[in-house]
Design a protein around this nucleic acid. Structure first.
Lengths: 220, 220, 220, 220
DNA sequence: TATGAATGAGCGTTCATTCAT
DNA sequence: CATGAATGAACGCTCATTCAT
């Protein structure tokens, strides 16, 4: 939320993110969110969206040029606000290193298997060839944020001698790759998988353990 | 093609995979493959498919009940034949353990970023809520095969003392999660990423190294 | 049209009959009337109707849910307005009894062999298994009206001693069955038949004579 | 049945009625009967007919030029065989005059409300504008037969002094018009109506009574 | 002859988009 | 700015009919 304002203030080029705070526009976006995430881009119809948003079909076109534009605006907004906000909460760069890794892993998994990010991932992956710009935004405000935070933290821990990392960016990517073991991957495919807190905690712990073994300082 | 016969011979239960060798049916499937993988399920139209397959629209319906059925048959065929064949080639269960890991990682990455598997992943992820059965097949004949092979091999290496693994299934999943670091993940989102052989080799090497650090035998 | 208001005023419950006076809706209904009565329900196509109504195909669906709904609305409207109006004009409950019978018979025949009622009869008979509700409406606002009027009149004449009828409802039904002798029956089958005024008058006269012989007061 | 052979022998012009006694052809006609009478001419599809007849679609076209020709052949056959046979059974030209009228009326009603004649009536009425020839055949071999028989019988009874009829053809038509009172008329519209034997008997009796009152000899 | 795959026109319906109100 | 009727192209699908086997 603070990032939203900060962002629009410091990045004057993307007027698109702040455009109007018009209530009708928000209504439309909420309808679009519900319908797009449920049915995909091609599967969603402007009539459905209008109905769900409780506005007329014409109103859609007063605020957005066409279906593609509405979709882009939605993904943009969801990435910058919803996703970014979720991810900002993750890194807690103080205290015990091993515990932090496990906590961060658990939080990352928990966020990524919740309905909205799963829906966003699905639609963005499937529309990536048609809307590469959106995949870019999704990445920058989604995984990107957390990757940047994480790599900075890793670098710091490395300096403190808690970890031995030469390429913190790649290490961060590996960490998040490991986080996706089992639960996230299967959830995205709607495969049956235990998503309980305990199951998440177990994957998180194994992820932390593994990461420490890869990058833990050599003990003599 | 030879694999096709092998497959149908060893799995006599899945008549669906071999159904007809009717040429027109194959034509339709190839048209469907091109159009579905390019435009997604909803984005593909039966007319396009007929055109691409160079058959009439009616012919589509002589071989498949409806769009969903054609789609299911296509994914089924692609998973069982194309994907499975690709993945069967991976495991090389002899020789040096560290080298095998790197080689397998490189092959896995190479396969997963090639156009067809990327397209399949996109369409299956996006249609998972509507076609959960297909995600299941895709998993079983895609990652599933390689996971099973890999976990068996890991168990074996563990017995030989080359690795120290207590949960080989989870370890295999972690290995493939690590393989997806950077290249695969970005490729699926159509993000700019270096897909050169060298880049793949680097990720593969780092993946092998990391895995060995996690599960390598404790050297005293 | 004036009858329309009368109708909607006296039957405040059937909002369906008066729904919109939207011009386009009327255009659609007139196109539907032309095409349905000419080609039957299954034989009529929505494209034809749109063309005849000089509207786009989409407009059809802005006013009616689907083909069946449009058909039902048309039959409903035709029965309540056109048919009912025609039949309301029949009964002339004053003057000489024998003459009234002949006049009513002639009017009834004349109405029932005119194009619209013949077309309606054909389509309703043929679609009765699929749209029983429409046959019911057609009967209630078609023959039903005239049957009710006629049986009331017969009862009255009976009381006056001009006729000797114990079951006026059945007698009315017999009267209209007799009216259908030759001309109406053949017309509905498109068989060659003399439909001249003279021919109608002759059947009407014979019908009146016959009815009087059946129900005329016993002359001592 | 005897009429069939007699007919085809004495009327060498209508080869169409006898064409083949080929079993396949009969199979096709039985399938066509089931489907046409259930769904109407436009509502029936050649595929349905082939399926119901348990032959291939191609076979339909080996025996009949097209859909219209198959339909015409079916109606022709049904009229000449089924309908005619049913109606031949009616007239019992001996014994008491009044009783004969009531019996004939009851038989006529019973036949006309049975499924096949109702279905035929529906489809022929609705397709009369498109297939006037079929309505003609239906009339000649349906009501026509019984009308001819009845008018001959009426003329005879008239000569015997049991009835006083100057136009026996018209009288016969009136008799059958009266027979259609209530039950037949409503049945054709699928309106709720009591079709029990008792109900039929009552209408038949009233019809006989009425007819006798119209044409009974003047009692002095 | 009997078959059923192939055809492409046409079906009922929905779509994204426009525009007069 | 909000509306929702109007549009016609395109959708998934079925049709009557043909023809190689």
């Amino acid at each position: 939320m603070p990032d939203d304002f900060a962002n629009s203030a410091s990045n004057p080029e993307d007027a698109s993110a702040t455009q109007h705070f018009c209530a009708k526009r928000q209504q439309v976006l909420r309808g679009a969110e519900a319908v797009f995430l449920e049915h995909g881009y091609e599967g969603a119809s402007m009539s459905q969206i209008a109905q769900r948003a409780k506005v007329s079909k014409g109103t859609l076109y007063n605020h957005f040029e066409n279906k593609a534009d509405l979709f882009a605006a939605l993904i943009d907004e969801l990435s910058r606000l919803k996703l970014a906000t979720m991810f900002e909460r993750i890194s807690t760069p103080e205290g015990n290193c091993a515990e932090t890794l496990v906590t961060a892993a658990a939080e990352f998994i928990t966020i990524l298997i919740s309905p909205s990010p799963v829906g966003m991932y699905r639609i963005i992956v499937s529309e990536a060839p048609k809307f590469p710009h959106l995949a870019d935004i999704f990445w920058r405000y989604g995984s990107g944020i957390v990757l940047r935070n994480m790599s900075a933290w890793l670098e710091n821990e490395s300096k403190k001698g808690n970890l031995a990392i030469d390429d913190p960016v790649f290490a961060a990517e590996q960490f998040f790759a490991l986080c996706q073991t089992r639960i996230i991957q299967r959830r995205r495919l709607e495969l049956p998988v235990d998503c309980s807190k305990a199951a998440i905690q177990e994957v998180a712990r194994k992820t932390g353990d593994a990461f420490l073994k890869i990058y833990g300082p050599v003990q003599s």
